[in-house]
Design a protein around this nucleic acid. Structure first.
Lengths: 160, 160
DNA sequence: AAAATATGTCAGTTTTGTTGACATATTTTT
DNA sequence: AAAAATATGTCAACAAAACTGACATATTTT
């Protein structure tokens, strides 16, 4: 009963099934710190442009999937349209994103980054990318594949 | 010029060094989705207790490191003390966290979770822990070690 | 023609963060 | 002992980013 090790390293995954001390506080915490510092990377650039992290996410995804609609973006970000409206409007007004009426469905607005938008997306991603590259390198060969699979598995299954 | 593959899987790490298209959009995005859904897990429980994600973080860390001081917590969360004050006060008033005057330095307030606080921390961590366990299992043997190392490497070096 | 959909917008609220200023108790330094 | 530094708390104003609810417009589907 006494003398339980304070460090729940590896045996947790195997020993208990769905019982008492199965809680994986360790990785929960590592994820928090990793994400905290990862998202802090672009802050310097964001401050210069006067944007926040919400703008960052919008520019990133529009840049990654040119032509995505407003509905697509809402589904990706999991926020309300009123919430998206403000940052999107600011990005459009500042010339980082432009809208094109959907060619099939003219109710839709397809979103594209401008040249400035592409440059911003790249600048914001750069320090994050460097952090990832360094972390992968330190972790060792094959890390990239494992990490990719793990992160993909952490995501909710697509609803469709 | 044309026909560049849309998918930047593995060669990115090797081929280019610090050049043009080195940006690792793929893992940046996987991290976003993983964290988005991971942090969404406890929302149902948080809604019931009337707390938000800020409260979650506080309860989590106090629970993990009993006796930590307010300064420790501020350093962990990287927020201002005024910002912490509100959620911490609510948690103390609701009986989830209690303060004890530091035995060495009586200016300090050591923080502890109450029994209710421990239960809350556990309940909040449970779905997250399950998600992690499932993701690791799907990823394959050895994933846990690699993921742990990667996440730890993603964190900023401790300032000290 | 009616209903549904995609988007936009107005108005008000909440959560979570910020800055700046100042108060109190306690410890450390001079 | 007095002065300075430190740990915490608190007041007040403000900002970013989310939320809800309601309603308008254009377009497509039924």
């Amino acid at each position: 009963m006494p003398g339980r090790p304070k460090d729940n390293t590896d045996y947790l995954t195997e020993v208990v099934g769905e019982d008492e001390d199965t809680i994986d506080f360790e990785i929960i915490e590592l994820l928090f710190f990793a994400y905290r510092d990862f998202t802090g990377d672009p802050d310097a650039i964001l401050e210069k442009s006067g944007f926040g992290r919400a703008h960052h996410r919008v520019v990133h995804f529009v840049n990654r999937e040119p032509g995505m609609t407003v509905a697509d973006l809402l589904d990706t970000l999991k926020i309300t349209k009123q919430s998206l409206a403000r940052v999107l409007k600011q990005l459009i007004d500042s010339g980082y994103i432009r809208q094109v009426t959907g060619p099939e469905d003219r109710r839709q607005r397809m979103l594209y980054t401008t040249e400035e938008g592409k440059a911003l997306a790249r600048a914001l991603a750069e320090p994050q990318s460097r952090r990832i590259a360094e972390a992968l390198a330190k972790t060792g060969p094959g890390a990239r594949e494992t990490v990719k699979r793990f992160l993909a598995n952490m995501k909710n299954a697509a609803a469709d």
